[in-house]
């Protein structure tokens, strides 16, 4: 049994001549919450997307427990079932109601009975505070509500890891808290989370580790206090000055 749930080893990702990620390594232990910060274009999304192989790493290896994501012959769909992902733009399915958005994958991918998937979908909607919205279509929901449905949709697959790519960046300020509260609850319930976000409040409340990336590289990592209050690297300090 591996002691880290996510293990990223020396991953490089090139798009043609662009090096989006350079030799990045990081691990996330079971139940840990790791926050990735860094300037725009520093490769955060790309690194995250390599973890469920929405992008294929050019070099290096990524493991989820004992499954090697980067194995070209491996069954990536089985790994993806266990790795939930939440996108900046929610990406809810606009032709389906909130309930159907959540129930679709468990039924079609895992082949669970309809009844079971709907029961779980209802439980999850209640958990993200949207029990009364099960028949709403995404366009009838606010951004914050859509993102909460998107989180519920990912959780419906009962993943052991959750990836978040700037889940609150597309939201109006007054809606950020309702999404962060759901994420905080998830973190407290012991979910393993790899989160790209610049929400300092969330970081201090929930993150076990903060990783700073710049120009495709992992520059430094440590506890939120270490990285935010006494960064070792000059680049980290500059970036933090910039966003605080």
């Amino acid at each position: 049994m591996a002691d880290s749930r996510i293990r990223i080893e020396n991953v490089t990702k090139r798009f043609g001549t662009v090096q989006a990620v350079r030799n990045a390594s990081l691990t996330v232990a079971p139940g840990e919450v790791v926050l990735v910060i860094g300037p725009s274009g520093s490769g955060k999304s790309t690194l995250l997307r390599c973890v469920n192989r929405l992008e294929t790493a050019t070099e290096g290896d990524i493991w989820i427990d004992n499954d090697r994501v980067t194995d070209p012959r491996g069954n990536i769909r089985m790994i993806r079932e266990e790795v939930g992902m939440v996108f900046q733009n929610f990406n809810l399915f606009p032709h389906l109601t909130a309930l159907d958005n959540i129930a679709l994958a468990p039924r079609k991918v895992k082949g669970e009975p309809k009844q079971t998937t709907y029961e779980r979908a209802r439980t999850l909607l209640a958990r993200v505070g949207l029990a009364d919205k099960e028949d709403a279509y995404p366009s009838q929901l606010s951004g914050g509500q859509q993102q909460r449905v998107a989180i519920a949709r990912a959780l419906a697959m009962e993943p052991k890891v959750m990836l978040f790519d700037e889940p609150t960046s597309a939201l109006d300020p007054e809606m950020i808290k309702e999404v962060l509260d759901v994420m905080l609850q998830l973190a407290q319930d012991g979910m393993t989370m790899l989160v790209v976000s610049h929400e300092m409040g969330f970081a201090r409340a929930a993150a076990d580790k903060v990783v700073f990336m710049d120009n495709g590289e992992v520059i430094e990592s440590g506890t939120p206090e270490q990285v935010f209050d006494s960064p070792k690297e000059e680049r980290t300090r500059k970036f933090l000055d910039h966003i605080l």
Binding site: R77, E81, V83, F93, A105, V109, A154
Partner: peptide, 18 residues
């Protein structure tokens, strides 16, 4: 259809066909 739709579906474990 925006690319994010296919990505969201794949991330949930669906095949491209599904």
């Amino acid at each position: 259809i925006p690319k994010g739709q296919m990505e969201a579906a794949l991330a949930l474990g669906m095949s491209r066909r599904q």
